[in-house]
Simulated assay, not measured.
Amino acid sequence: MHALTDIGRSYSAVARALGLDRRTVRKYALASTWQEVMRRPPRKPSTLDPYRDYLQQRWDEGEHNAKALHEELRTKGYLGHYQRVKMAIAPLRRGLPLDQPHERPPSPRETVRWITTRPDKRNLYATERLHRLLDQCPELQYTYDLVRRFAAMLDNRDATPLPTWLDDLSRSGLAPLAGVAGALREDQYAVAQGITTPYNSGVNEGRITDLKLQKRIMAGRASVSLLRHRVVLIAHLRRSVDRSTMEPPR
């Protein structure tokens, strides 16, 4: 088409000669490269997005086997299927660039989950997005640092940094964090005990959950005596399970 239009032939004449629509001829004639007319529309984000630079790097280095690339990504934390990797590198086989990701902003719930998850338990996709988010928001970066400092106290069972941490929480300039600091100061001794000792109220919370569950299931369907009987049986079953998990292996 470029060869014909460059010698002065009109789009209509080229369309008649090649048996194509005039608009198709115009689109190809105006494109400087053939890749421009083969570009796909933006695709939805996927868990493969953080690994696209690595895929491009390995492709440029000569690794064109999709299964081998998939195995390499698995060692880096990718949990997706082999077919997704195969589809991702398909444009490279045709001389096209990799599809560019189109990300939506993370929700508050996603951000909270990324911040509270241990860094070594966070996948590469979440880590990469979190770091970009923290770079754009100093207040969130400060919050993240405070959360990780508190997590370190829990991991080490060391409440020594707690007073300094509460002071930093109060001076953060962020009203929600200052409110948390005020609430923790009212029961600081209990907070310190919760950090330094292995005891917790998980057993009691489990019993309460069992009781509420039975109440929801049986409400209006059985007498109090039957409800009591079911609660007792559930408690007995949970004790049996707890006892079996505590027994040393034989």
Rank of each mutant, 00 (worst) to 15 (best):
E186D: 12
R16D: 11
W165P: 02
D21P: 00
H70A: 06
R39W: 01
E128Y: 00
L226M: 10
V37C: 12
R230M: 12
V147W: 06
K215C: 00
P248R: 11
C137Y: 05
R216T: 10
G206M: 07
R104K: 13
P249Q: 05
N200V: 01
A15Q: 04
Q193K: 11
I195S: 04
S225A: 15
E247W: 03
Q83L: 10
L124A: 15
E247Q: 15
E186N: 08
L227H: 13
P97W: 03
P97M: 05
T117G: 00
P97Y: 02
P161N: 06
M38P: 00
R22W: 05
P163C: 06
R207N: 07
T164P: 00
R239D: 13
R9I: 04
M218C: 13
G202A: 15
D120I: 06
T111L: 15
L226T: 13
L166I: 13
L233Y: 03
Y199N: 07
Q188C: 12
R129S: 01
R16Y: 02
S240F: 03
G77M: 02
T143W: 05
V203F: 12
H2V: 01
V241M: 12
Y78M: 01
P198E: 06
I7Y: 00
H64W: 06
R149L: 09
Q141F: 00
M38Y: 09
L177C: 10
V112T: 13
D187Q: 14
Y51R: 01
E71L: 14
P108G: 08
G95E: 07
I89A: 02
D187F: 01
Y28F: 11
D167I: 12
P101A: 07
R22S: 03
W165D: 03
L184N: 05
V232N: 11
I234L: 11
T160G: 06
G8Q: 08
T164Y: 08
A175M: 09
L48G: 02
A15E: 04
K27L: 15
T127H: 01
L134M: 03
A219Y: 13
R39I: 10
W165A: 02
R40D: 13
D99T: 06
M246R: 15
A66T: 04
R238Y: 02
T33V: 08
Q35W: 01
Y28R: 14
R148H: 13
Y51W: 06
V231I: 15
T117I: 04
A222I: 08
E186S: 12
G206S: 10
K44D: 10
N204P: 00
G179R: 14
A190M: 10
P161C: 06
I208R: 07
R216D: 10
L174S: 12
D99Q: 13
R216F: 10
L177M: 14
L211H: 06
V232P: 00
V37Y: 03
E205T: 08
R22V: 14
L30Q: 14
G202D: 11
D135A: 14
V14F: 04
G206P: 07
G194V: 03
G77Q: 05
H236F: 04
P249R: 09
K215E: 12
L134H: 01
